[in-house]
Design a binder for these strands. Sequence first.
DNA 1: TCGATATATCGGGAATTAACGATATGCTTT
DNA 2: AAAGCATATCGTTAATTCCCGATATATCGA
Lengths: 99, 99
Amino acid sequence: MDYSEIFKALSNKSRLQILHWLKDPVQHFPEQQHNGYENGVCVGIIQQKCGLTQSTVSDYLAILQRVGLVEATRIGQWTYYRRNEAAFAALGQIIENKI
Amino acid sequence: MDYSEIFKALSNKSRLQILHWLKDPVQHFPEQQHNGYENGVCVGIIQQKCGLTQSTVSDYLAILQRVGLVEATRIGQWTYYRRNEAAFAALGQIIENKI
DNA sequence: TCGATATATCGGGAATTAACGATATGCTTT
DNA sequence: AAAGCATATCGTTAATTCCCGATATATCGA
C-alpha cells in the first residue's frame, strides 16, 4: 500500500489546522448551530476561520477526503465534513508497527 | 508545534522505503556484515538498494535525520543510519491523540 | 603527503504543490 | 423558469520538491 499520499495530505499546516479544529467542532466552530455537529462542519464555516479562499478550502477538504482522513455528507446545498477517527487510529498503528 | 515537517519527510515513497528497510537491516542489507548493525546501515549500502544516486540518498537521509526519524553515527569514513523507534512511537501517539 | 574511498553539499532543470480567481454545478426558493 | 447561495472544478502563477551531476569535505592506507 502507498502511505505517502496520506502523509502528503498531512504535510501542510493549513490542512493540519483544519483537522485539529474538526476534532472539537463545538468549541472551534460555535457559529454553526443549525444542524448540530453530527455530520461535521460545512465548508463555508471552515473557510471563514481559515482565512483561505473558498476554492482552496474546498480543494483541501477534497484532498483530506481522498485519503480517507475525513468524510463528507451532503445535506441540501451544504457539504459537512467530519474527521474519520478510525482512519487516524489505523494510521497511528501503522506508524507504530508497519512503517 | 509544527508536525507538517515530519509528515513532509514521510510523504515520499523512496524515503518510506528506506525507513522500512531499516526496520530490519539484517534481512534487507545482508551485504553489510563488517560492523554488525548496532549503528544501522551505511549510506553506500542503502544507496545500492535504492537505485537513486549517492547525493539523493544522502539528502534523503539528512531530511529524515533533521526531523528525528533516524539517527546517524559516523565511524571512520562511514556514516551509519538507524531508525529512532522512540520517534515513531511518539508520532503514532500524536496521530492517535493530538492531531 | 598523495591518492582512494565514503559522505555531504551545492546548483539546477523538471515535476509537483500552494493558493488564487473565474466559472461551473447543484440545491432551494420564488 | 429564474435568481441566489453553497460548493466543486478549472486554469494559472509562484513556490517548493524531486533527483541529478559536479564538487567539496573527511577519513583511511601507502
